[in-house]
Design a protein around this nucleic acid. Structure first.
Lengths: 195, 195, 195, 195
DNA sequence: CATGAATGAGTTTTCATTCAT
DNA sequence: AATGAATGAAAACTCATTCAT
C-alpha cells in the first residue's frame, strides 16, 4: 500500500466512525480532520469534498458486505438456508458497519445525487442476489410458485423488510437480544404466521 | 378555534409540506416562514424552536395515523384481516403523510432528544397494537403459537419490516405498482414462502 | 426612504469605497461588514451574495454617469461640443466613481456572468449615445461622412479609447495635471473627425 | 539553454496560457503546476512566488512587444507611418499575447507592488517611443506644433487610448471584424494630428 | 532536483435564534 | 401580537506556501 493509500484509508476510518455515530449532516470536516489527526485542509488534498468522503466510506462497506454475504449464500445448500444466510450475514455485518444504514436506509431522501446513485446501484445488486435465491427455491420446489411479474416486487418488498428490521436492530440494544433469536423469526417468516 | 390556534395550524401545515419534501435538516426556518406567509421571528412567537415545530408536525401525523389504523383494525374480524388492515391502512396513510417516514424511519439517528422521545412513544403504541393483533390471532388459533417472550420480539421485527417496506414504497414510483398488489404480498408473508 | 433602503445604501456606500480601493477580489465580505458597522451575516440579510453587492454598486454608478452625461450632451449645441461634453463629463464623473473602472475596464475578464451582462448592457447604451452624437455631426456636416457600417466600429473604437484614457487618468495623480488641459487634447483628437 | 532554464521556460509557457485565459487571481498554482506537468511545490523551486511567475510572464511578453514594435517604427519613413506602425504592430502582437493586457490594462489596481513597478517601467519605455514619433512628426512638419509640456500629456493620452482600443478588440470577436479596418480608423484619428 | 504531503489563514455562505419596537 | 433587523457560530471549501525527504 502506498503512503497515499494508507492515509486515505486512515481518513476513511475516522470518517466512518463519525458518520456512524452522527450521520452525514452532523459530521463536519473539522470533526473528521481532528479524528484523523490531520488538518482540515489536508482532507481536501485526498478527497475533493465531504460528499466524496461519504461516498468512499459507503462504497467500501458496500463491497465488503456484498462479498461476504454472497459467499455465505453460495455455501448454503437449500434455498431456505440461502435465505437465512442472506439475512443473518447481512445483519451481522451491518451491525458492525452501521454507516451503511444511513444509505441503505433513510436519512438521505434529500441528498446528494452522487449518493443516490450509489444507493441505486447497491440496491440493484442486492435485488439480483435475492431474486436468485427465490428463483432457486422455486425451481427446487422448496418455495411456492410465484408469478414472474410478482417475483420482482416480492424481492423488493423483502429487501425493504430486511432493511427495516436491520434498522430496528441497530437502534436500542435489541441487537443482542434479538440477533440470537433471529432463527426463530426467520422460520416464522418462511412459514408464515397462519396455522 | 382561537386565532392563536389557527396560526399555529397554518405554520404546521407549511412546515409539514416542507419537511416532507426536504427533511428536517434541509428545511430552514426561513423556508417555513415564507411558506406560512409570516416573518421568520413570528415562528418563535408560536414555537420555541425548529425542533418543536418538527415535533408538533410529527405528533399530529402520528395521532391521525394511529387513530385511523386502530379503527380499521377494530373493524376487521379475523386476526389475518386485522393484520392486513394494519399494514394496508398504515401504508395508505403514510403515503400521504410522508413526513412521518423520516421519524418513524431513518434520518434521525443523530437527532434531537425531543424527537427521539417522540419516536419511542409512537413506537410503543404501535407495538401494543400489533401485539394485540398477534395475541388475538393466537387465541383464536388462527396464528401459530408463539412463546410469550418471542411475541415482543416478533412484533418488533414485524413493525420494523413494515416500516422498511413502507419506506421502499415511498421511493420511486413503486407505490402504485406495488400498492395494488399488496394483497398478494401480504398473503405470502402470512403463509410463508415454503411449499 | 425606508429604513431598509437606508441600510442598503449604507452598505453600498461602504462597499463602493472598498471596491474602488481594492477591487472585487481583494475586498472581502468581512471588510464590507466592518466598514458598514454591521455583522458579516447582516450583509446577507440585505444582499444575497458578494456579487450582488458589487452588482448593485456598479449599477448605481452606471445610472448616475449615464444620466449626467446624457444631460450634458443634450445641452451642447454642436456635434463637437457634444463629443467634448460626452468625454469630459464622463471623465469628471468616473474620476469620482472609480468603481466603475473595474467593470467598464479590465479586471473582470474572468468574472461572474451577472457582471458581464451588466457591462454589456452599459456598453450598449453608451454606444448608442456616442453613435447618436456622431450621426448628428455627420448630418450637420460638422463631421466627415462615414460609411454606415464603419459608424458602429468607429463608435466602439472611440468608446474603447475613451475608456483607456479614463483608466490612465485614474492612475497616478495625472488627473489633476491633465484634467485641466483635457480641452486641448480633445481638440487634437477631434480634428480628425472634423470636416 | 541549461535544463534549469528549460524548465523555467516551460513553467512560464504554461502560466502564460492560464493567465491569458483566467487572469492573475483565478489562476492557481495548482493550475500552473498541472499545466506544466510538474508538482506544485516544484514551481517554488524555480520561482519564489506566484507573483514572481506573473512578473516573469509579463516581462517576457513586454520585451518582445517592445522589440518588434520598435523595429517596425524604425523601418517606417514618415511620422504618420511610424504612428500607424506603432499601433498596428502593438495590436497584432498583443492580440497573441493577451496576458499583457491585464497588466498594461486593468485588473491590477489593487495589486502586488512588484507588478506595479513593472507596469511603470514598461509604460515609461512605451511613452518614450511614442513621444519620439510625435517629436519626429513635428520636426518634419507632418504634425501640428505642440507645446513641449503638452507633448508628454498627449503621448500619455494617446497611449491610454491605444490601450483602451486594444482591450476592446480582445473582447468579443471584434478583433477580426475591426482588425482589418484598423487602417480606416487610424486615418481618422491621425487626421487630428496632421498638418 | 523534485515533490508529495501538509496546512494556516482566509473566504463565502448558512441559519437558528434573539430582541427592540 | 408580530416582525424587521441583526448576528454569532459554524460550515464547506480554497490556496499560496512550506518542508522533509
Amino acid at each position: 500500500m502506498t503512503k497515499d493509500e494508507a492515509i486515505r484509508t486512515e481518513v476513511l476510518k475516522a470518517a466512518r466512525a463519525l458518520f456512524q455515530r452522527f450521520g452525514l449532516f452532523k459530521t463536519t470536516m473539522e470533526d473528521i480532520a481532528k479524528a484523523a489527526g490531520k488538518g482540515k485542509s489536508t482532507l481536501y488534498y485526498y478527497y475533493a469534498s465531504k460528499d466524496e468522503i461519504f461516498d468512499a466510506v459507503i462504497s467500501e462497506d458496500m463491497e465488503e458486505v456484498m462479498t461476504v454475504v454472497n459467499l455465505a449464500v453460495e455455501k448454503a445448500n437449500s434455498a431456505e438456508e440461502k435465505l437465512k444466510a442472506f439475512t443473518s450475514h447481512r445483519i451481522k455485518l451491518l451491525t458492525q458497519k452501521a454507516a451503511l444504514y444511513s444509505i441503505v436506509f433513510g436519512e438521505i431522501s434529500e441528498n446528494p445525487n452522487l449518493i443516490k446513485k450509489l444507493k441505486k446501484s447497491y440496491e440493484a445488486r442486492e435485488l439480483e442476489g435475492l431474486k436468485a435465491i427465490l428463483s432457486y427455491g422455486i425451481e427446487t420446489k422448496e418455495f411456492k410458485k410465484i408469478e414472474d411479474g410478482d417475483l420482482d416486487d416480492l424481492a423488493y418488498v423483502m429487501l425493504c423488510a430486511f432493511r427495516g428490521i436491520e434498522m430496528g436492530l441497530f437502534e436500542d440494544n435489541r441487537i443482542k437480544k434479538i440477533g440470537d433469536r433471529l432463527e426463530i423469526i426467520l422460520d416464522l417468516l418462511a412459514n408464515g404466521f397462519k396455522n
